[in-house]
């Protein structure tokens, strides 16, 4: 098990999932988010991936009830899309997601075999908004999402901001220390190597 101090230091970074870009409260109408992009970054799929890795955890943390579906295909020329499903969009299917979820919870016995509650059934409903996010960077995608849904941003409290600044400072310091230690070790190793060489020459001469 990783040492406790190290783990706690990493846990401080849980903060990043609470504040920062992407910490927003989606309005009640939004029922689901969908993302579709390539597994390979080639062809403008890097932004969507970064959006998934960096922004989606924050969105999910602040909106735990909204399911997020990610589909990744293998064609770089394929689409990169952001789907936003809302309860007012078309038929009641996405709106019923809450109800159907509780239904399946009651009817299907909790088992390990994937059941519809665990593995999402592809929604047949058409998304209210479909945004092309090819070659867009993660902040652009976020801006698109905010403008389409009218989500409200969650501001960091002063304490959180202060802690974030502290972590940042710590990381800077850590990098500096790392360089110093690396230099010192390299120097020691070089000296040792020289010594070894010198000894080797002596023994070879003898």
């Amino acid at each position: 098990m990783v040492a406790l101090i190290k783990r706690m230091r990493n846990l401080r970074e849980l903060l990043w999932v609470r504040i920062g870009p992407g910490a927003l409260l989606l309005p009640k109408e939004v029922t689901k988010l969908g993302l579709e992009f390539s597994k390979n970054k080639v062809g403008g799929h890097m932004g969507p991936r970064k959006f998934w890795r960096e922004m989606l955890p924050r969105i999910k943390f602040h909106n735990p009830t909204i399911p997020v579906e990610i589909r990744r295909h293998n064609t770089p020329t394929g689409p990169a899309l952001l789907h936003i499903y809302t309860s007012t969009s078309s038929d009641p299917t996405p709106a019923a997601s809450d109800i159907s979820v509780s239904d399946t919870t009651a009817s299907t016995p909790p088992s390990s075999t994937p059941n519809p509650r665990d593995t999402q059934v592809p929604t047949t409903a058409t998304p209210a908004h479909t945004v092309d996010i090819k070659s867009a960077d993660e902040l652009d995608i976020l801006a698109q999402l905010v403008s389409r849904t009218g989500a409200t941003e969650i501001k960091a409290t002063p304490e959180e901001a202060a802690e974030m600044a502290e972590i940042k400072e710590f990381n800077v310091r850590r990098e500096k220390d790392r360089v110093e230690v690396r230099e010192k070790l390299a120097k020691e190793r070089r000296e040792e190597e020289l010594l070894r060489l010198a000894r080797g020459e002596v023994s070879a001469a003898a």
Partner: peptide
């Protein structure tokens, strides 16, 4: 679980 579910967003739940 709240944190973990946020980190596992978009992963296959199975």
């Amino acid at each position: 679980m709240h944190y973990i579910r946020a980190f596992e967003v978009g992963q296959n739940p199975a």
